[in-house]
């Protein structure tokens, strides 16, 4: 009934390659989060304006990013714009797709954060002679970051896991690499089991780093 024989040796042999691919996963997730945070902030600020082209662009972005499958968003940057003759590298496709998705989700987190800061904080800052830019960068945004810190961490975890979709556009990150070895050796179960453990470890590292960073950043 259960006559599958486990063969771990090929997996162990390619473990260094898998770990290296794991680093690539972490790298693309981190980069897409950095881009996502910057764009997400801009989208949130644009959405709070309530009028103008920036508002509509930001709203369209958030709607598309949140309400369509992430896989389709990756396909858009791969096959979608590929149909128009623009060919990105697999790395660029995944980076663009994940950044697009993260920015959309983070924008809503940021918007909630901004709305939770009382207007009076802005007034107090402006009454001291700060420009709108200074008041936002020194007073408002640091407080928003604290409020949305855990949602951001969550999104980072999600970015790590979501990057596994990269294997469907030919990116050899952790899942793509695993798929490559698995199909060469037919030890599919073993490979994906080990890869799952690696994903788990990466997420744990991300969460630990996030906790340390929080202790360093938020002393109030």
């Amino acid at each position: 009934m259960f006559d599958y024989n486990f063969h771990w040796r090929p997996v162990m042999k390619s473990l260094p390659d898998l770990l290296e691919a794991g680093l690539l996963t972490l790298q693309v997730a981190t980069l897409s989060m950095i881009i996502g945070i910057v764009i997400g902030l801009l989208l949130a600020l644009s959405r709070m304006k309530k009028t103008g082209p920036a508002y509509w662009l930001a709203t369209a972005w958030v709607e598309l990013a949140r309400n369509t499958p992430a896989l389709f968003q990756l396909f858009f940057f791969g096959f979608g714009i590929g149909a128009f003759g623009i060919h990105l590298s697999p790395f660029a496709i995944v980076l663009a797709g994940l950044s697009f998705n993260c920015a959309g989700y983070l924008a809503e987190n940021f918007r909630g954060g901004f709305q939770a800061i009382p207007d009076t904080q802005l007034r107090a800052a402006r009454s001291l002679g700060m420009t709108a830019w200074q008041a936002h960068t020194r007073i408002i945004i640091p407080q928003v970051f604290r409020l949305v810190y855990h949602p951001i961490t969550n999104q980072m975890v999600w970015a790590v896991l979501m990057s596994s979709l990269g294997m469907l556009v030919g990116f050899r990150e952790l899942s793509g690499e695993t798929q490559f070895f698995a199909s060469r050796t037919f030890r599919i179960f073993e490979y994906f089991a080990v890869t799952a453990v690696i994903y788990y470890a990466i997420v744990k590292i991300v969460l630990g780093a996030s906790r340390l960073l929080a202790m360093r950043l938020f002393r109030y």
Binding site: T120, R123, A124, A125, S127, G129, P142, Q143
Partner: peptide, 18 residues
């Protein structure tokens, strides 16, 4: 620049919590 001359204290004291 003008606001530097005009200090203001609010009802809700608005200290910067961070």
């Amino acid at each position: 620049k003008l606001r530097q001359k005009l200090g203001m204290v609010f009802q809700q004291w608005n200290s910067f919590p961070h």
